[in-house]
Amino acid sequence: MISLTSPIRTRAHSWPAGLKLAGLCLSTVVLFFIKDLTAQVAIATVVATLYALPGRAFLAAGWRHLRGFWFFVLIVAIYHTAVGEIYEGAVILLRLLSAIALANLVTMTTKLTDMIKVVRFLAKPLTIFGLSSKILELSIALVIRLTPVLVEKGSLLSQSWRARSRRKTSWRIILPFTILALDDADYVAEALKARGGFTLLKEN
């Protein structure tokens, strides 16, 4: 989600985020009821056209985001070839790719702050059970902020391993990585406290 940004500003950027997400929900449900290959090919073509509309740069960015799923495509393809259900396999694959592509499309054309506003709206009923929507928002922001930091820490840890080992990094770095992450969490909690923490957050 962090890297799922658009290289250009499209017309869809100004559409309401809630509407886009509702549309995504509906189209994904519809996708699951369509079992006809021709219809799925038609839908996939429409999705590809949507990506092509804002121009070449957008289409290329969209393709890059989708390319990461090649492994799942491969597994589904191998399985269905093995059990001899080529037609069903093709329907499932097209459905999967269209659904992911549509979801990416919404993410690419929606600003994070707009997305968080939708979450705040949806979480409103939960406030009667004591959930603060401010805390929820803060948590989302923290995840987005700290994921690149943790990825960087993980890669540094794996480099320290490789600097002193001929073998590949193993699962044994998971424990030190967890401790590192918990330690970081302590510091961030302190920084949060230094600027008022949750107590003042709830009062606002």
Binding site: I2, L112, L138, A141, L142, I144, R145, V149, D184, Y187, V188, E190, A191, L192, A194, R195, G196, L200, L201, N204
Partner: peptide
Amino acid sequence: VGILFQNPDHQIIFPTVIEELSFGLTQTG
């Protein structure tokens, strides 16, 4: 008081500059 820590990655809570600067201000009401 305000406090500045040694490691910025232990201090910055938000993904963008404007959000990070705004946060402390909303906390003061």
